[in-house]
């Protein structure tokens, strides 16, 4: 199929638009998550979504709306991760591991207790960027606007918190609130992005573009902008490459973002000498 002809299809155009937005969303949030050593929160929340969806299905919510109905539970899961980290002697990655495992376990138990569903649970959980609906695109756009606005207004505070939480608090930043905003936005992004692009892609997009930007960035603002650019570039080049080479789109996006990271690491090393 000729390359340019394929761009004429509506589902391809929606994939490109939604992909750009998701790449941007994930990169903007991911940079703060990576710096806070919360990189795996995407994975953890996606697993927790599995349990939440199982529970919501059990309550008889129709299949079309399950992922959205699960959002409040996933938000609670995100706060749980945060609470675990701030209390006791538990690191971020450990807290994520706990919530992630709990989500899977609950999902498996609930699926078994329910004695079956009217739909295949997994096929509703794992998305594909090529089958995004118009409403999904609009919802993604709305979330992207919120995230861009929050980062524009409170980015400096997030940055200060990532640098040192005590210093941030003695600068008059409500660090508790900043953390809550960050994980809640991440939870929303994960649920939405997971439905659109699948579980593995969310996690990779939250990690790889920010880490690529960290190889090159000379300061905070350049790194943030670079991460956003890397996120968008990964998704767009991944989608286009998958058309050109006739490969599954989700996997190609991840490989593209990994290659981008490798290039960034090499350039970074070369620049440092």
């Amino acid at each position: 199929m000729p390359f340019f002809e394929i761009l004429g299809y509506g589902f391809i155009q929606r994939a490109l638009i939604a992909g750009t937005l998701i790449g941007l969303l994930c990169a903007l949030l991911g940079i703060f998550l990576v710096l806070r050593r919360f990189s795996l929160i995407g994975d953890g929340l996606a697993h927790f979504t599995f349990g939440s969806v199982a529970l919501v299905l059990l309550c008889g919510v129709s299949a079309t709306w399950v992922t959205y109905a699960a959002i409040p539970l996933v938000l609670i899961g995100a706060l749980g991760i945060l609470k675990l980290t701030s209390s006791a002697r538990i690191h971020g990655d450990t807290a994520i591991g706990i919530v992630s495992a709990l989500g899977i376990a609950l999902g498996v138990i609930l699926a078994s207790l329910s004695g079956g569903y009217n739909v295949d649970l997994f096929s509703y959980l794992f998305g594909n960027i090529l089958i995004i609906s118009r409403n999904d695109v609009l919802l993604t756009a709305a979330l992207a606007i919120v995230v861009v606005a929050v980062v524009a207004l409170r980015g400096r505070a997030f940055f200060a918190v990532a640098f040192d939480e005590d210093l941030a608090r003695t600068s008059g930043i409500n660090t508790g609130r900043a953390n809550i905003i960050l994980v809640l936005l991440t939870a929303l992004t994960v649920v939405l992005a997971m439905k659109l692009v699948g579980i593995m892609l969310v996690s990779a997009l939250l990690i790889l573009p920010p880490v690529a930007a960290l190889q090159l960035g000379r300061g905070f603002l350049p790194t943030l902008l670079l991460a956003a650019a890397c996120g968008i570039l990964s998704v767009l080049s991944g989608i286009l490459a998958s058309f050109a080479l006739n490969l599954p789109t989700g996997g190609t996006i991840i490989v593209a973002s990994f290659l981008l990271f490798v290039v960034a690491a090499l350039v970074g090393r070369w620049r440092r000498g």
Partner: peptide, 21 residues
């Protein structure tokens, strides 16, 4: 060691109003 902040950006965080830096 690769925390993406320059010396100037860190020092600038010291200018504070009632919302933070």
């Amino acid at each position: 060691p690769h925390f993406p902040a320059t010396v100037e950006e860190i020092v600038r965080l010291g200018f504070i109003d009632k919302h933070g830096p």
